[in-house]
Amino acid sequence: MNSQGVSHSAVLIAGPTASGKSALALDLAQRTGGIVINTDSMQVYRDLRVITARPTPGEEAVVPHRLYGHVDAAVNFSAGAWVNDAAAMLAEARTQHRLAIFAGGSGLYFKALTRGLSAVPPIAAEIREGVRARLERDGVEALHDELARRDPSSAERLKPRDRTRIARALEVIEATGRSLTDWHRDGLPPLLPPDTFRALFLDPDRDALYARIDARFEAMLKSGAMEEVAALATRQLDPLLPAMKAHGVPALIRHLKGEITREEAAEIGRADTRHYAKRQFTWFRHQLPEFEWVKPEAARGWLDDVIPGRS
């Protein structure tokens, strides 16, 4: 048991976007002296504070926050890279006898944390650039056909127009001579074995959540999201980079180019975010059944249960 009376080394707080995860993590960290560790694949990018609803500087000053905004948008950051960073943060929390509080909405990050990750080695930049050049020159269908010849199992699993995942599968087989399926069989162990953590998935009412998503997107625009995306657009980065595909970013860039109106861009951003939230519900239900589904109004009681002796 750690110095704050919590009997496990980590608490995992997941949920759909705009469900209140950051506030709940902040509350738990204040009550336990814990460290909040970002588990969201878009909030790692320093260029995207407003559009990804990262904790504010004021919130970050209240308790230690780690892995927020520590990656440049030009980096093709991966789940494997995040796991390496998360391992260091978990070690820091344990050394300081603090509760590690992992908060975010990226299912793959949580799965890597609790189930382990495939041991795919880093891909050389020249291989990645070569595959992307072929993607732009020949189109996604041609690369899917190539993947079907070289890695039939991955090609069958992927949608024929899934540019990002098709490119990734080709990069791996070109760099290693082995398919992603093969690498997935030889995985790395989880950072958090069973029985070393408690895991919560916030389960808000869908209609209320979608209304909150819509209102939050408009608030983001009023708080500098447009200016943030404009600054990112001036860098002229590869549109396939993860940061360039954050919800709202592609549509706002189209608006800045004069292709669509501000309201059209905002509606695309709101719709994309709502669809993402729907996918998050489905993904966690099927992929991570060990998470306890809790209504937001019951979350405080869940925290009380996590912290023995408090009510």
Score class of each variant (00 low, 15 high):
residue 2 N to L: 11
residue 6 V to S: 14
residue 9 S to G: 15
residue 11 V to W: 10
residue 11 V to E: 05
residue 14 A to P: 05
residue 15 G to E: 04
residue 16 P to T: 07
residue 17 T to N: 13
residue 17 T to L: 01
residue 17 T to S: 08
residue 23 A to P: 03
residue 24 L to F: 07
residue 24 L to W: 11
residue 25 A to C: 01
residue 26 L to T: 10
residue 27 D to V: 12
residue 27 D to M: 14
residue 29 A to N: 11
residue 29 A to K: 12
residue 32 T to W: 13
residue 34 G to S: 05
residue 36 V to Y: 02
residue 36 V to H: 08
residue 39 T to S: 15
residue 41 S to R: 05
residue 44 V to D: 03
residue 44 V to P: 08
residue 45 Y to W: 07
residue 45 Y to T: 03
residue 48 L to S: 11
residue 49 R to V: 07
residue 52 T to F: 00
residue 52 T to H: 02
residue 52 T to N: 14
residue 55 P to T: 09
residue 56 T to I: 08
residue 57 P to I: 05
residue 59 E to F: 00
residue 61 A to V: 05
residue 63 V to K: 06
residue 67 L to A: 00
residue 69 G to M: 06
residue 69 G to P: 07
residue 74 A to C: 10
residue 75 V to C: 14
residue 75 V to L: 07
residue 76 N to G: 09
residue 77 F to T: 06
residue 83 V to P: 00
residue 84 N to R: 14
residue 86 A to W: 06
residue 91 A to N: 11
residue 93 A to N: 12
residue 94 R to I: 03
residue 96 Q to R: 13
residue 97 H to M: 14
residue 97 H to R: 14
residue 97 H to Y: 12
residue 101 I to T: 09
residue 104 G to A: 10
residue 104 G to K: 14
residue 107 G to F: 02
residue 118 S to R: 11
residue 119 A to H: 13
residue 120 V to M: 12
residue 125 A to V: 14
residue 129 E to K: 13
residue 130 G to W: 12
residue 130 G to F: 07
residue 131 V to M: 03
residue 133 A to E: 13
residue 134 R to S: 01
residue 134 R to A: 01
residue 135 L to N: 04
residue 137 R to A: 11
residue 139 G to Q: 11
residue 140 V to Q: 09
residue 142 A to I: 03
residue 146 E to T: 14
residue 150 R to S: 14
residue 158 L to V: 10
residue 159 K to Q: 15
residue 161 R to A: 07
residue 161 R to S: 09
residue 164 T to Y: 10
residue 166 I to H: 06
residue 166 I to D: 04
residue 177 G to W: 11
residue 177 G to D: 06
residue 178 R to D: 12
residue 178 R to Q: 15
residue 184 H to C: 11
residue 189 P to E: 14
residue 190 P to T: 09
residue 193 P to D: 14
residue 195 D to M: 05
residue 197 F to Y: 15
residue 197 F to T: 03
residue 200 L to N: 02
residue 202 L to T: 03
residue 203 D to Q: 11
residue 206 R to H: 13
residue 207 D to E: 15
residue 208 A to I: 10
residue 209 L to Y: 06
residue 210 Y to G: 00
residue 211 A to M: 09
residue 211 A to P: 05
residue 211 A to S: 14
residue 212 R to L: 09
residue 213 I to S: 04
residue 215 A to I: 05
residue 216 R to D: 09
residue 221 L to N: 12
residue 222 K to H: 15
residue 223 S to V: 03
residue 228 E to L: 03
residue 230 A to W: 05
residue 232 L to Q: 08
residue 237 L to C: 02
residue 237 L to A: 03
residue 240 L to V: 02
residue 241 L to E: 00
residue 241 L to H: 07
residue 242 P to M: 01
residue 244 M to W: 04
residue 244 M to T: 02
residue 244 M to S: 05
residue 247 H to G: 01
residue 248 G to Q: 10
residue 248 G to Y: 04
residue 252 L to I: 13
residue 254 R to C: 00
residue 254 R to A: 06
residue 256 L to A: 13
residue 256 L to Q: 15
residue 256 L to S: 13
residue 257 K to R: 15
residue 257 K to N: 13
residue 258 G to F: 11
residue 262 R to T: 04
residue 263 E to K: 12
residue 266 A to Y: 00
residue 268 I to W: 02
residue 271 A to M: 11
residue 271 A to D: 08
residue 278 K to W: 04
residue 285 R to L: 00
residue 288 L to Q: 01
residue 288 L to G: 00
residue 293 W to L: 08
residue 294 V to M: 00
residue 295 K to L: 02
residue 300 R to K: 09
residue 301 G to S: 13
residue 301 G to H: 08
residue 307 I to D: 07
residue 309 G to M: 13
residue 311 S to K: 10
